[in-house]
């Protein structure tokens, strides 16, 4: 069965493992050939900042991990506009330059076209 799955990643990187576990789940979803979209909102936006130096705290950098998403054919990436604005960021601050910026109404519409949501 081929399902439409939206993975929502709302948590900041590094402080705990939720964001990394969300990333791993995204790769698994793509490998098992499901129709995956990925949405970054709330503090999940911080995963996308350029120039993270996670080696400073002995972790793997989200900057490089998330850059790999296209190689797994994960190309439906969405970023919540209000979350971005609340944090004083613009798309230029972020690594995923092929992502689509969506407002809350568009996200609502995105949710309502999915079979499942993987909530992180």
């Amino acid at each position: 069965m081929h399902k439409k799955i939206l993975l929502i990643s709302r948590h900041a990187p590094y402080g705990n493992s939720i964001a990394k576990d969300a990333f791993d789940a995204a790769l698994a979803t793509a490998i098992y050939d499901q129709d995956l979209s990925m949405l970054f909102m709330d503090d999940g936006i911080f995963q996308l900042l350029r120039d993270q130096q996670a080696q400073e705290i002995s972790q793997k950098s989200f900057t490089s991990m998330l850059s790999a998403l296209p190689f797994y054919d994960i190309d439906k990436l969405y970023i919540h506009q209000e979350s971005l604005e609340q944090r004083g960021l613009t798309i230029e601050n972020l690594i995923v330059d092929n992502a689509t910026i969506v407002n809350s109404a568009q996200i609502s519409n995105l949710l309502n076209h999915q079979d499942h949501i993987l909530s992180f």
Binding site: R10, E82, S83, S108, N112
Partner: peptide, 25 residues
């Protein structure tokens, strides 16, 4: 076509509900 949102954090200390409200239709 509609979504059930569950929220398990208190809005006195956490903004999960606020984000949920933004997305809810």
């Amino acid at each position: 076509m509609s979504t059930l949102h569950t929220v398990n954090k208190s809005s006195f200390t956490n903004r999960a509900l606020e984000s949920c409200i933004l997305i809810c239709r």
